[in-house]
Amino acid sequence: MSSLKRKRADNDDEKKILAMILSKQGMGATPYDIKAATSIQGPLVTKALKSLKTKKLIKDIQNMNNKGIKHFFGFDVEPCKALTGGDWYTDGQLDLAKIEDLKKICVTILSKSKKKVVTFDLFVAYFEKTNNEMSREQTKEILKNLVLDNVVMEVKSNGMNEYAGIRIGEICYRLTGKKAGDGGEARAGAFASVPCGACPHIGLCSPGGAISPTTCSYFQKWLDF
């Protein structure tokens, strides 16, 4: 319903309160803010807010950081993430089902990868292609969650073997061997100890360069292992 088809504020109190709320945009306004800004008495503010909500000129949500406080917004205004809890909250509740579904998708992508290693940009491209409305930051948060669960490990490309074609030093992800929610121990395998992932000079490493896999004593020891 467009704002043109809605009823309008009937009196000066409603007009003042509506104007004040709209001026706050995504941050909204609490009843205390409204009383302080308009000098309208509490009972009249409560009455006006109820009337404006009935007319669908405003709406309210609870502050995620203090659920005893309501913030009022223009009916078509999107509340800021600081109040709603961010992208992972729906109607003030953490959307665990959505998070778990996205984690499963990431694990499936990794398990179906022929090289068993996937770059961050490939995850982003997948979600863009499937119209999943996942931002880069959200994708990063899901992968970080999987790393904390010890289901996925974050590694850096060394440009060789399964990393062939991936820029040296680029962040990649691979499965640890532990399934999400199985409660078992992670099975990282011998690759978990490859020195490249923790090397501070990985960005300068290249075949034939001053720093290279062929001259690296740590890498040679790992190959011997």
Rank of each mutant, 00 (worst) to 15 (best):
D121Q: 12
D121C: 06
L122K: 13
L122S: 13
L122C: 06
L122Y: 06
L122R: 09
L122H: 06
L122T: 12
F123K: 00
F123Y: 12
F123E: 01
F123D: 01
V124D: 05
V124R: 02
V124M: 00
V124H: 01
V124A: 02
V124G: 00
A125K: 10
A125F: 06
A125H: 08
A125C: 03
A125D: 12
Y126T: 00
Y126Q: 01
Y126S: 01
Y126P: 01
F127Y: 12
F127D: 01
F127W: 08
E128Q: 12
E128M: 12
E128H: 11
K129R: 12
K129L: 11
T130P: 02
T130W: 06
T130R: 12
T130D: 10
T130C: 08
T130V: 15
N131S: 08
N131Q: 11
N131M: 07
N131E: 10
N131Y: 05
N131C: 07
N132R: 13
N132P: 00
N132D: 11
N132A: 13
N132G: 07
E133A: 12
E133M: 09
E133L: 11
M134G: 06
M134T: 09
M134N: 06
M134Y: 05
S135Q: 04
S135P: 09
S135L: 08
R136V: 14
R136W: 10
R136F: 11
E137H: 08
E137I: 14
E137R: 12
E137C: 02
Q138H: 07
Q138V: 07
Q138T: 04
T139V: 13
T139E: 07
K140D: 14
K140N: 13
K140A: 15
K140M: 10
E141D: 15
E141P: 01
E141S: 12
E141M: 11
E141C: 07
I142Q: 04
I142K: 03
I142P: 02
L143N: 05
L143A: 02
K144A: 10
K144E: 13
K144H: 09
K144P: 01
K144M: 10
K144Y: 07
K144I: 04
N145A: 14
N145Y: 05
N145T: 11
N145R: 06
L146N: 02
L146K: 02
V147R: 06
V147L: 03
V147A: 03
V147W: 03
V147T: 04
L148A: 14
L148Q: 10
L148M: 09
D149H: 03
D149Y: 05
D149M: 06
D149F: 07
N150Y: 11
N150M: 13
V151Q: 01
V151E: 05
V151T: 09
V151H: 03
V151P: 04
V151R: 00
V152A: 03
V152H: 00
V152S: 01
M153Y: 07
E154K: 15
E154N: 14
E154I: 10
V155M: 04
V155L: 03
K156P: 04
K156E: 13
K156L: 15
K156T: 14
K156C: 09
S157F: 08
S157C: 06
S157L: 09
S157M: 08
S157R: 02
S157P: 03
S157Q: 05
N158T: 13
N158V: 09
N158L: 11
N158M: 10
N158D: 15
N158R: 12
G159E: 07
G159R: 09
G159W: 02
M160T: 15
M160P: 08
